[in-house]
Design a protein around this nucleic acid. Structure first.
Lengths: 238, 238
DNA sequence: CGTGGAGTTGACAAAGATCAATACTAGTGG
DNA sequence: CCACTAGTATTGATCTTTGTCAACTCCACG
């Protein structure tokens, strides 16, 4: 887990890199590619090196030249969920830059890697030049991608009842008093959303009900104890 | 599941719609918003109506004005996985339009809904005006989002061994002869990728090995019978 | 009144997690 | 060159969670 970066090797040109077919910038004109070449820097990192971490500010986009990088989130209990394995030609950190948000996952080199680095400064003017409508759509895309990834992590790390609880809290909204609302989904659809069997969902609802965290009347849900419900959505136990 | 569309109600203006805070276009200028108003059409659909289906061509973007729409994929065995519940202000179908690809999920109205519709034609020039680099990045974003969603569906509908099998085939690449490659991941990382315990992964590997579908030598994997391995990645059974 | 669909409950089986013990491997320092 | 050690991989036993199947209830609606 050393934090060394060497710069002995010379950077590959985006032009030739793109000729090899794979990679993010393949369709671009030679002009655009030489532009990238001018703006970018190049470096190598040893296996185990962290390229960026969740919560940190994105300062630019990495483009992997050789090696493999794993992108992952750490869920409750320290369990990792690998979101993506990036290989040569793949981009890292573009989501945070395009969405103008903090990184929401970690990136670690699984092998020694060579990466090009494109500072956000060179991307910002290009984004600024785009129509506000497009920028707004891009931001939406990024948010949605982050949300699905969150669900992927939940799905294999949280029990069905905990996922249900979190979903109920989401539906109940931000307020902190008790809340009453109508489920917009049937039990079957609830199951389809949570990734479980309908029976499992029903039993989980019954369990929450018996614990007096919610009150059930058909599709109507009343949150009786928001505090305990919230803690139930965080703790795998009980 | 009727396929009626009425147009009695009058469309809400994007300007006032955006004033309510939520929604995709909130940060936009009044100019841009009145531009949207000119381009868009408006309609209402009854509960149960399909707005678009996976595999169909995207002709524009929907913006939900009232009601709830479920976006879902249908996995093996006809089991639905709800990807997202869209409410007022949410966008539908933007991924396909921005990524210039077919819809990869279905959209169905869960309640009666009112939606505005922005034809792709009005978006295309805006995208075309953006830098090719940005367009390329957007395409990447869309592809990645689609992939994570696929993994979400897999996660709750396919057994661990099947997920592993599919992943091995992915790593083995496109060729159709036998293939030999080195796993770039440890058993633990394999587990972190697939969303399983390392022991489960090891046992699944051992099982595939016993069935003579692969040969294992530490991190090296040899695909012995690609055909049967492929069918094992599709069939939940056995 | 039926009739059908959604919801609920119980019994059981299957998949997978967890725990514990053991093997294997590569690097380290004598 | 040989133990020694730490990390990784493997295996078996057991427990938990969840899925599956079947019966049964509860309405809403014709």
């Amino acid at each position: 887990m050393k934090t060394v970066q060497t710069r002995t090797k010379t950077a590959p040109s985006c032009v030739s890199c793109s000729k090899q077919g794979r990679g993010a910038f393949c369709g671009l004109s030679t002009d655009a590619l030489t532009g990238l070449d001018r703006a970018k820097s190049f470096g190598t990192y040893p296996r185990g090196q962290i390229l960026f971490q969740a919560g940190s500010r994105a300062t630019g986009v990495h483009c992997l030249s050789s090696g493999i990088v794993k992108l992952y989130r750490v869920g409750a209990g320290g369990k990792e969920q690998i979101l993506r394995l990036a290989g040569p030609g793949d981009l890292l950190g573009h989501r945070a830059v395009l969405g103008e948000r903090l990184h929401d996952h970690d990136a670690e080199a699984m092998t020694d890697v060579e990466v090009c680095y494109l500072p956000a400064d060179t991307l910002a003017p290009l984004m600024a030049a785009a129509s506000p409508l497009v920028r707004s759509l891009v931001r939406k895309l990024v948010e949605e991608a982050a949300e699905v990834e969150g669900r992927l992590v939940e799905r294999s790390q949280l029990r069905a009842e905990v996922r249900l609880t979190a979903f109920l809290l989401h539906l109940a909204g931000k307020g902190d008093g008790p809340a009453r609302f109508e489920l917009p989904l049937s039990r079957q659809e609830l199951a389809d959303y949570l990734g479980a069997a309908p029976e499992t969902v029903i039993r989980a609802l019954a369990h929450l009900s018996k614990k007096r965290l919610i009150k059930l009347e058909g599709r109507f849900v009343e949150v009786l104890d928001r505090v305990r419900l919230t803690s139930a959505a965080e703790q795998p136990a009980d």
